[in-house]
Write a protein that binds this DNA or RNA. Structure first.
Length: 669
DNA sequence: ACGGCTGTGACT
DNA sequence: TAGTCACAG
């Protein structure tokens, strides 16, 4: 489902930078004695020596390939060094690679628009830099050209023996009568060579790069000469580069679409594709994909480099293949707790380092049913508003899972009808956080936010909250969920999950295989604490985001809630009588950081109206709780400017110098 | 139902 | 929209 983008009229200079066997390099930097040795990184896996996820070039020349097992690799190359991916909470932990990737990005982002395409790949739009260089210091006037730049591969240029080719490269870069597009690429060559040297110097990582007029060609080029080299695609070389290329090698054609082109239309190479008219392709694949295919066959791709240095989502997942498939609710809960912990940890660092908050939590799982009927049925994904706090994420993830499981099991979820119980197996679990927005740093930012947000006209009246039907993660959940919630309230939350489950021994939890029936007597802790209908907030967030013309800064969801309070403050107050807690009383609650279960209705101390007309005392606890702690704190000090925000705390945390991480510790709720 | 884990983007 | 699917590495 690629979509066609028109090529911009002016020539761009685009680079694709690809780290060479990145995970291996990260491990070799950590253990320099491994440098130069055949090395591979294996993922924690006792089974057949683990799966290779990165292979050094020395090992590749021994015949070691990715997607070999550790044992196979050992057989192919006995001297290979196998390094294990770090493990945390019983799963692979890629954080060291992520932050190594960030090191690289922060260097590459200096010279132009930069897009972090994956953990080890970056696109750069160097058009401006190249044009500046062409105007101010064109290569033809340079005394000498960078050695690294001279080692470039220039497609279409024969690379004869000896040092001669460097002379040819120099000539190509400096040619006075060159096409302007080629001159720009020449500048790109020099810039990228410089950047790669800088990356090597500052991170010790080598990389390869492709330099061309668009992303597609740059990506293609970066893979042509590895490791530690760069390849240029002059305009004149595009046709030859593409014509012989198997379509499966083109980005986006490595899967089903590529296969369909081969089997349905007999297209194997791009030159085959060139024979098809645009309308013919559109007939087969629709207007968008058809046009896109026609364009890429000609090296045309207007896809822009997104100026994005940070990921748009975070996820934590694990598979449980074959015999390891999870078969009890408690084991699922155990793993969801682990995954949620990791996710929360990453959300915390994102907030601290980048001042960003995520607003949607999604659960994905894969499953099968042994006594099939339709064994192929997909396990549904579910999402809900993301509430900051480890245990909140854990609870919500588990609730989402149970909701999805009921849907998955359908009528079989209730009770064994006969003796043959239809039983589920979970083969994969993941939790992810998305819809991440920036928050500005600095004091009273929150106020600026809400002010800017509150000026946006609301196109649709988003209905009174009491109309909303309780959605997935909330009420009517299982007893086991409540058990865990109570346990948690009573003890520091780090221990919760481990006490009642252990990994890999599902069978010891025999009686929890079935989804428990809905039991009215079994009230969910979620329902008690957070009776608002969280599902509807997600909608309002989305609507707000769509309505705002500028980029979505701030917390639209809370603004939307404020609007609701403006509209129907009284009914709000009534419908959630049990739960409405004033911010001021909440302050004491947060300070003690223990029993949030005291959702006793307290008198509102401070009901001064704000400029938006809602009463701060009526802000629902759950809305407040969904904000990151830092924001809560800032918001609180905004609402009560004359008092110190966290006077009740034991540590001196009111000071400006204390780190966000402190407030954002796993014990905070 | 061994390629695990993670991420993006389009479609509906 | 939330959920699904495809794709990449």
């Amino acid at each position: 489902m690629p979509v066609a983008r028109p090529e911009t009229s002016d020539a761009r200079v685009i680079a694709h930078v690809d780290m060479d066997c990145f995970y291996v390099q990260v491990e070799q930097r950590k253990q320099p004695e491994l440098r130069g040795l055949p090395t591979a990184v294996v993922q924690y896996n006792e089974w057949q020596g683990g799966a290779l996820i990165a292979v050094s070039y020395e090992a590749r020349s021994c015949g070691v390939k990715r997607s070999m097992r550790g044992e196979e690799a050992k057989a192919a190359c006995p001297e290979i060094q196998l390094v294990q991916v770090p493990v945390a909470r019983g799963k692979a932990d890629l954080n060291t690679y992520r932050s190594a990737g960030s090191e690289v990005v922060s260097i590459l982002a200096q010279s132009g628009k930069c897009e972090r395409a994956s953990i080890d790949e970056v696109y750069l739009d160097l058009t401006d830099a190249a044009e500046s260089m062409l105007a101010d210091a064109p290569p033809e006037g340079l005394e000498s050209i960078d050695e690294e730049a001279l080692k470039s591969h220039i497609l279409g240029m024969s690379r004869e023996d000896g040092d001669d080719f460097k002379e040819s490269v120099r000539d190509w870069i400096c040619r006075k009568d060159a096409d302007r597009r080629d001159k720009l690429l020449g500048c790109g060559i020099i810039i990228v060579a410089e950047l790669r040297k800088q990356v090597l110097k500052e991170t010790e990582f080598s990389c390869s790069a492709g330099i061309a007029h668009n992303k597609m060609l740059a990506k293609l080029a970066s893979g042509m000469n590895k490791p530690a080299q760069q390849t240029v695609v002059p305009y004149a070389a595009v046709e030859e580069l593409l014509s012989s290329l198997p379509i499966k090698k083109m980005k986006q054609l490595g899967g089903k679409l590529g296969t369909s082109l081969q089997t349905d239309l007999g297209i194997d190479t791009v030159s085959d594709l060139l024979q098809f008219s645009e309308t013919k392709l559109q007939e087969h694949y629709g207007i968008n994909t058809g046009t896109w295919l026609w364009n890429i066959a000609r090296g045309i791709s207007g896809e822009e480099v997104q100026g994005r240095l940070l990921p748009k989502s975070h996820g934590s997942g694990k598979t449980f293949p074959g015999p390891r498939a999870l078969r009890s609710l408690s084991n699922v809960q155990h793993w969801l707790n682990q995954l949620s912990e990791e996710l929360y940890e990453r959300l915390s660092s994102d907030l601290e380092q980048n001042k960003r908050i995520a607003s949607t939590l999604t659960l994905h799982a894969s499953a099968f049913r042994s006594k099939d009927s339709d064994s192929q049925k997909k396990f549904p994904s579910k999402s809900c508003p993301l509430r900051y706090g480890v245990t909140k994420i854990q609870e919500d993830a588990f609730n989402l899972f149970q909701a999805a499981l009921r849907e998955y099991m359908g009528p079989f979820g209730t009770k064994p009808q006969g003796n043959k119980k239809e039983t589920w197996r979970i083969t994969g679990l993941s939790v992810s956080a998305s819809k991440i927005v920036d928050i500005p740093s600095g004091t009273s930012s929150i106020m600026r936010y809400f002010q800017s947000q509150s000026t946006i006209p609301s196109s649709s009246e988003s209905g009174c909250p009491q109309e909303h039907v309780a959605m997935t993660p909330s009420a009517s959940e299982s007893c086991s969920e409540q058990k865990s919630a109570e346990t948690e309230a009573a003890m520091p939350n780090k221990d919760i999950s481990i006490t009642d489950t252990s990994p890999d021994l599902d069978n010891s939890y025999g009686n929890m295989d079935m989804v428990p029936e809905k039991d009215a007597s079994c009230q969910s802790s979620e329902a008690k604490e957070f009776p608002t209908q969280s599902g509807t907030q997600t909608k309002t967030i989305g609507r707000k985001i769509n309505n705002s013309k500028e980029k979505n800064r701030g917390m639209p969801s809370i603004v939307d809630i404020f609007k609701n309070y403006n509209a129907t403050p009284q009914s709000q107050q009534e419908t959630r009588e049990d739960s409405t807690v004033s911010l001021t009383s909440n302050r004491g609650n947060l300070s003690s950081s223990t029993n949030h279960s005291s959702e006793v209705n307290q008198e509102v101390e401070d009901r001064r109206e704000t400029e938006w007309g809602y009463k701060v005392g009526e802000i629902d606890q759950s809305v407040f709780d969904e904000l990151p702690y830092e924001i809560q704190r800032e918001f609180r000090s905004f609402l009560r400017p004359n008092k110190r925000p966290n006077a009740g705390k034991s540590k001196g945390d009111g000071s400006a110098s204390s780190s966000i991480a402190h407030y954002f510790s796993p014990l905070k709720r």
